[in-house]
Amino acid sequence: MALTHDARAARPRRTPVTWVRRGGLSTLVFAMPLLVVFGLFSWLPIGRAVVMSLQETNLVTTAWVGLDNFRTVLADPLLATAVGNTLWFAALALLLGYPVPLLAAVLMSEVRRAKGLYSALAYLPVVVPPVVAVLLWKFFFDARPEGVFNTMLGWVGVGPVPWLQDAGWAMPSLVLEATWAGAGGTIIIYLAALTSVPGELYDAAEVDGASVWRKVWHVTMPQLRGVLLITFILQIIGTAQVFLEPYLFTDGGPANATITVLLLVYRYAFGQSLGGDYGAATALSLMLAAVLAVLSVVYFRLTRSWSQA
């Protein structure tokens, strides 16, 4: 507040010389590396995408087509499938991928010995390169009765499950791998947040005779609220952009059961050997970005009171 007040007072006498004297130049120079990196690698491509979404281009010849690309995308029957699949993925990932890391983190924070070992084990999947992980899981997901998972299920008399080879099973299979691959990062965030919960609160709850679950529900959860809200929206944004799993596991199959919005973007741009529809690809990307931006704003508005309470 004081700063803006200062600036306002100084405004009438501002000249280039005073601007330099007051440190404007060094501010600019210090900001330059950041501006250059962001400008070149983030904002320029975003700007190019906006331009490209209004063009029909094969990167050699270019024509302006107005909103045609957006119409093409909206008229594509695959769009509804892709949106539906993405929502389905997000819902499953939320159901499975949101509580599991929290539960794991709470349990791990209760462990007294070899804490580091558990953290390392939980984080290990994040360190495995995603492509390697997917290839491994592809092997596990072998749909034959002698496949790895099916053999294990066979021990308890379940299955065989078709995993990736069935339209109904394919998406849950992808979510299973994605949860395994992504949980580690979230667990570390929760663990860090848990250490900041004041121990006195637990002591007080204990004095009041609270059970473990009451402590978790009435002490841990409210204290983690801020972090939980952030990881929730990050999870939504992340799952809305799911690409790696469907691309590497199934390439959208079987019969488009796992085609997601981002995979559709990829298909528009690169799916055909004779050059893609880059206009449609950027148009759909922008629409996705817009939806996510709106979603984020609405989400933070709705939860503002809760997160500050």
């Binding site: 990167l59 690169f270 050997s273 893609g276």
Partner: peptide, 12 residues
């Protein structure tokens, strides 16, 4: 390896 789904990206 020529693949329909990667060729365009390689060409572009």
């Amino acid at each position: 390896e020529w693949k329909a789904t990667t060729f365009a990206a390689q060409l572009a």
